[in-house]
Amino acid sequence: MLVENITDLVIFVAVIKVGNLSAAGRELGFSSAVVSKRLQRLEEQLGVRLLNRSTRKLCVTEEGLRYHDYCVRVLAELEEAETLITAGHSQPKGTLRVTVPAAFGRLHIAPLVPEFLRRFPELRLSLHLSDSKVDIIEEGYDVAVRIGDMKDSNLVARHLGIDRRKVVATPAYLRKFGTPNTPDDLAYHNVLLFANPAPLDHWQFIDPEGAPCSVKVTGNFETNNCDALRAAIYADAGIALRPVWDVWQDLKAGSLQVLLPEHTHPSFKIQAVYPSRRHLSQKVRVFIDLLCESFGDTPYWDVTT
């Protein structure tokens, strides 16, 4: 049995996304009455209830959740098939859903958005900035930028750069409290901790001879927000371990100073990842190509440090 009209699937997915019949109708250009009628027709054809509806609340049934996952995949495959057929004959079209780490996205992805939209005016970009590691397949994202090892075998990765870490502090803090000469000296300093999700209070080092060591650090402030951590650093409140991509301009300007420069830290991959399919959709390809073009073989934040 096949669904009579693919639009019914589009409506169903939109209703789940926004959680409201009227809002879904406005997004798609239908009245709430039409949306309700189409959902009812879909349920009758399937012989199951997908949604429990009341005057105040809309709840998805267990069957509705399972069917929603299939609908998202089917619609994505149809969009990809259309893109493949028209590739080389037209601009990429449709909606590209991207999720990226919040601070990295704000600093290095968001500035590329105007150029991306200028090049591909028939694409609609939905950019999600969050430090939560979402399941891009389950949540319907086309591509994600990930920092760290990739453990999901259902995703394909393309290299964008390396996330290198540096211990930093302001010159004013160092004048007041002194400069640590060894990792063990950090025990005598106030350390500002990044918590995502748990505080990173064991810092890993590799000494000049290549031997690894771990140092427990403590301080009076922890946060899961890069901007809040930056504010604390610039208030001369303590020492922090930060990615070079976050502080490269500060290091270049001299407003932050690298500490323990002879001790390095484990680095992480920065990658664009997307669901493993036989064909890479045109809209994903052009987005990743722009990232690679903009970052280059050695990203600009590494060149200047």
Rank of each mutant, 00 (worst) to 15 (best):
110 A>N: 04
129 L>Q: 09
132 S>D: 12
196 N>W: 00
33 A>H: 09
283 K>P: 03
161 G>A: 07
235 A>I: 02
181 N>F: 09
105 G>K: 03
66 R>P: 00
181 N>T: 09
154 N>M: 13
74 V>P: 00
190 N>G: 06
287 F>P: 01
31 S>G: 15
299 P>F: 06
155 L>Q: 11
182 T>R: 11
13 V>S: 11
262 E>N: 10
132 S>Y: 11
100 V>T: 03
85 I>M: 14
80 E>W: 04
162 I>M: 14
105 G>I: 03
289 D>P: 02
15 V>L: 03
57 K>L: 15
204 Q>I: 06
128 H>S: 13
38 R>L: 05
154 N>I: 00
62 E>Y: 12
283 K>Y: 02
18 V>K: 05
215 V>N: 00
162 I>E: 11
116 F>N: 02
281 S>G: 14
210 G>R: 09
126 S>V: 15
160 L>W: 06
245 W>V: 03
183 P>R: 07
163 D>S: 15
229 L>N: 01
89 H>A: 15
151 K>M: 06
243 P>M: 11
274 Y>S: 14
191 V>M: 15
124 R>M: 11
67 Y>I: 04
65 L>S: 10
141 Y>C: 02
130 S>I: 08
194 F>L: 06
233 I>G: 04
182 T>E: 10
56 R>K: 15
296 G>N: 05
129 L>K: 09
64 G>E: 02
305 T>W: 04
98 V>N: 01
294 S>L: 05
269 K>E: 14
186 L>T: 07
63 E>V: 11
249 Q>K: 13
156 V>P: 08
272 A>G: 09
272 A>P: 07
17 K>G: 00
273 V>M: 00
59 C>T: 11
247 V>K: 02
268 F>N: 07
195 A>G: 04
276 S>K: 14
32 S>T: 11
11 I>K: 12
81 A>W: 06
213 C>R: 14
289 D>S: 12
73 R>I: 08
142 D>G: 05
162 I>H: 07
296 G>E: 03
178 G>W: 01
276 S>I: 00
219 G>W: 05
79 E>W: 06
227 D>F: 10
79 E>F: 03
196 N>S: 05
284 V>H: 04
42 L>T: 08
134 V>H: 09
225 N>W: 08
256 L>W: 02
139 E>K: 13
122 E>Y: 07
287 F>H: 05
242 R>G: 01
66 R>A: 14
83 T>P: 00
223 T>K: 05
14 A>K: 13
75 L>C: 06
230 R>M: 13
27 E>S: 14
215 V>H: 04
280 L>C: 14
159 H>F: 14
98 V>R: 02
88 G>V: 09
260 L>H: 08
268 F>R: 13
131 D>I: 02
221 F>N: 09
15 V>D: 01
35 V>H: 08
15 V>I: 07
